[in-house]
Structures are given as C-alpha cells and as structure tokens.
Lab assay of single mutants.
Amino acid sequence: WLKDDEATHCRQCEKEFSISRRKHHCRNCGHIFCNTCSSNELALPSYPKPVRVCDSCHTL
C-alpha cells in the first residue's frame, strides 16, 4: 500500500496530482492513480462490496 505523500503523479497516465486531480488507491494493487485511471469497481474477496480498482487490475 503506497502512502499518499509518496505519490506526486498518477502511476498510469503520469499526470501530476493537484487539488482538482485527486489521489485514489487501487484496492487491489495498492498503487495510487487519478480518478480517470481508477474509475472501475471490482468485487474482491477481502471487501464486502465492490471497491475502486485501477484500469490494469480491472482488466486482469
């Protein structure tokens, strides 16, 4: 799980985070992405409801 202060850019699109481009953790891989690159939800065994995942984890 990557800490918020360790990420300054989206792991996928590499756009810089700002007040309007917020950080979101993928609940599967733990990396930090922008909203555009992590707008999917997936049912994971460790969560009772579908949770936010990055595009890469969603296509696995």
Score class of each variant (00 low, 15 high):
Trp1Thr: 06
Trp1Val: 12
Trp1Ser: 14
Trp1Asp: 15
Trp1Leu: 11
Trp1Asn: 15
Leu2Thr: 11
Leu2Arg: 04
Leu2Glu: 13
Leu2Ile: 09
Leu2Asp: 12
Leu2Lys: 14
Leu2Ser: 08
Leu2Val: 11
Lys3Ile: 04
Lys3Asn: 09
Lys3Phe: 00
Lys3Leu: 02
Asp4Lys: 10
Asp4Pro: 03
Asp4Thr: 06
Asp4Glu: 08
Asp4Ile: 06
Asp5Trp: 03
Asp5Ile: 05
Asp5Ser: 07
Asp5Lys: 10
Glu6Thr: 11
Glu6Leu: 04
Glu6Cys: 12
Glu6His: 08
Glu6Ala: 10
Glu6Pro: 07
Ala7Trp: 08
Ala7Arg: 11
Ala7Lys: 04
Ala7Tyr: 10
Ala7Pro: 09
Ala7Thr: 12
Ala7Asn: 07
Ala7His: 08
Thr8His: 12
Thr8Tyr: 05
Thr8Gly: 10
His9Trp: 03
His9Asn: 11
His9Gly: 07
Cys10Asp: 01
Cys10Thr: 01
Cys10Ile: 02
Cys10Arg: 01
Arg11Asn: 10
Arg11Leu: 14
Arg11Asp: 13
Arg11His: 13
Gln12Lys: 03
Gln12Trp: 02
Gln12Phe: 03
Gln12Asp: 11
Gln12Tyr: 06
Cys13Gln: 01
Cys13Tyr: 00
Cys13Leu: 00
Glu14Phe: 07
Glu14Thr: 07
Glu14Ser: 08
Glu14Tyr: 06
Lys15Val: 05
Lys15Ala: 03
Lys15Asp: 07
Lys15Tyr: 07
Glu16Trp: 02
Glu16His: 10
Glu16Met: 05
Glu16Tyr: 05
Phe17Tyr: 01
Phe17Pro: 02
Phe17Ser: 01
Phe17Arg: 02
Phe17Trp: 04
Phe17Gln: 01
Ser18Gln: 06
Ser18His: 04
Ser18Trp: 05
Ile19Asn: 12
Ile19Pro: 11
Ile19Val: 09
Ser20Gln: 14
Ser20Asn: 12
Ser20Tyr: 07
Ser20Lys: 11
Ser20Cys: 04
Arg21Ser: 05
Arg21Asn: 01
Arg21Phe: 06
Arg21Gly: 06
Arg21Tyr: 01
Arg21Glu: 09
Arg21Trp: 00
Arg22Cys: 03
Arg22Ala: 09
Arg22Met: 14
Arg22Leu: 10
Arg22Val: 12
Arg22Thr: 10
Arg22Gly: 08
Lys23Leu: 04
Lys23Met: 09
Lys23Cys: 08
His24Met: 08
His24Ile: 03
His24Cys: 09
His24Arg: 04
His24Tyr: 07
His24Ala: 06
His24Thr: 08
His25Gly: 14
His25Val: 13
His25Arg: 14
Cys26His: 02
Cys26Tyr: 01
Cys26Ala: 02
Arg27Met: 12
Arg27Lys: 13
Arg27Phe: 14
Arg27Pro: 15
Arg27His: 15
Asn28Tyr: 06
Asn28Glu: 09
Asn28Phe: 08
Asn28Met: 06
Asn28Ile: 06
Asn28Arg: 08
Asn28Asp: 08
Cys29Gln: 00
Cys29Trp: 00
Cys29His: 00
Cys29Ala: 00
Cys29Glu: 02
Cys29Ser: 00
Cys29Tyr: 00
Gly30Leu: 09
Gly30Met: 06
Gly30Cys: 03
His31Lys: 09
His31Val: 02
His31Glu: 06
His31Gln: 11
His31Gly: 13
His31Asp: 09
His31Leu: 11
Ile32Met: 14
Ile32Arg: 12
Ile32Gly: 14
Ile32Cys: 09
Ile32Asn: 11
Ile32Gln: 13
Ile32Pro: 14
Ile32Ser: 12
Phe33Pro: 00
Phe33Arg: 02
Phe33Met: 04
Cys34Ala: 02
Cys34Tyr: 02
Cys34Arg: 02
Cys34Leu: 01
Cys34Trp: 01
Asn35Gln: 14
Thr36Cys: 15
Thr36Asp: 15
Thr36Arg: 15
Thr36Trp: 14
Thr36Met: 15
Thr36Tyr: 14
Thr36Glu: 15
Thr36His: 15
Cys37Leu: 01
Cys37His: 05
Cys37Gln: 03
Cys37Pro: 03
Cys37Thr: 02
Ser38Asn: 01
Ser38Val: 12
Ser38Leu: 07
Ser38Asp: 02
Ser39Val: 08
Ser39Trp: 02
Ser39Lys: 15
Ser39Ala: 14
Asn40Cys: 00
Asn40Pro: 04
Asn40Met: 11
Asn40Arg: 14
Asn40Trp: 00
Asn40Ile: 07
Asn40Gln: 12
Glu41Val: 10
Glu41Leu: 08
Glu41Lys: 11
Glu41Trp: 04
Leu42Asp: 14
Ala43His: 10
Leu44Ala: 05
Leu44Ser: 03
Leu44Gln: 05
Leu44Tyr: 06
Leu44His: 05
Pro45Thr: 13
Pro45Ser: 12
Pro45Asn: 12
Pro45Gln: 14
Ser46Trp: 13
Ser46Glu: 15
Ser46Lys: 14
Ser46Ala: 14
Tyr47Lys: 06
Tyr47Gln: 09
Tyr47Gly: 11
Tyr47Met: 09
Pro48Thr: 05
Pro48Tyr: 02
Pro48Cys: 02
Pro48Gly: 10
Pro48Ser: 07
Pro48Arg: 05
Pro48Ile: 04
Pro48Ala: 08
Lys49Val: 09
Lys49Leu: 05
Pro50Val: 10
Pro50Trp: 03
Pro50Asn: 11
Pro50Lys: 12
Val51Met: 06
Val51Lys: 02
Val51Asn: 02
Val51Asp: 00
Val51Thr: 14
Val51Ile: 06
Val53Ala: 10
Val53Asp: 15
Cys54Ile: 00
Cys54Ser: 01
Cys54Phe: 04
Asp55Glu: 15
Asp55Thr: 02
Asp55Tyr: 05
Ser56Ala: 15
Ser56Val: 15
Ser56Phe: 15
Ser56Met: 14
Ser56Ile: 14
Cys57Ile: 00
Cys57Gln: 04
Cys57Ser: 01
Cys57Thr: 03
Cys57Gly: 03
Cys57Glu: 01
His58Arg: 08
His58Lys: 10
His58Cys: 04
His58Ile: 08
His58Met: 09
Thr59Gln: 15
Thr59His: 08
Thr59Met: 12
Leu60Thr: 10
Leu60Asn: 09
Leu60Phe: 08
